[in-house]
Design a protein around this nucleic acid. Structure first.
Lengths: 108, 108
DNA sequence: AGTGACTGCAATCGCGCAGTTGCACACGAG
DNA sequence: CTCGTGTGCAACTGCGCGATTGCAGTCACT
């Protein structure tokens, strides 16, 4: 079930300020429609929809159709997955740096 | 020591593809100059410099002047710091979701 | 049935950013 | 000293993206 989204998607989604605000807003009020979110933010509804599409592609929110409305909910899993990816990358870099440092101090 | 850089900086830095490539390149070859990196990537030196500035603002690389050249090195700490930030945010959202779910099933 | 509200698609505009080019300066090597 | 190489600053361009507007479709509610 763990839909592995490329981390770049998550970064691009999280890079935009309006998207981060939107994400917090969705986290506060789950199952909120696009129009409802548009009323809470100083942007048009279409802008909200576009941002929600990006967030959905990044796996950060999930959309669910209840009746006539599209309800959105936050999805923390992708956040933790990307965090784990970052941690492993940082660990790899750190290991390489340590190795270089050791080699510099004790050359062969 | 933990230079707390706003997470948005890190996200914007990591969102660009060229910047990610550059980051990997710097991680591979520590203490590499801007011109050396420009030769390894299909972009001009100035573009590299701009990207390195962004990465430096995000705390992902550190610059050090050795003689005439500016040498760059990766800096994994900021990566782990941002990962921790993401984890805490995900935990907060998850807690809220759990609470809502519990309230829905056992409505007081 | 008719009205109001929410949605989706398409065209358009404006701005910010990636990337380039050119030039002046600094420093190391010959 | 001179030449080559690396750097920094500034202006310019092209394009992608955020945002808006307009229109048509659909569903709930009275």
């Amino acid at each position: 079930m763990t839909v592995t989204v490329p981390p770049e998607r998550v970064f691009t989604a999280l890079a935009d300020g309006t998207r981060r605000d939107l994400l917090v807003l969705v986290a506060d009020r789950p199952s909120s429609s696009a129009s409802a979110l548009a009323r809470a933010l100083p942007v048009s509804r279409q802008a909200i929809v576009k941002h929600l599409t990006v967030l959905s592609d990044a796996g950060l929110v999930s959309s669910e159709k209840t009746g006539r409305e599209m309800c959105f909910r936050v999805r923390p899993e992708q956040l933790t997955a990307t965090a784990a990816w970052m941690n492993s990358l940082a660990a790899a870099w750190d290991a390489r740096l340590q190795e270089l440092k050791a080699r510099a101090e004790h050359p062969e």
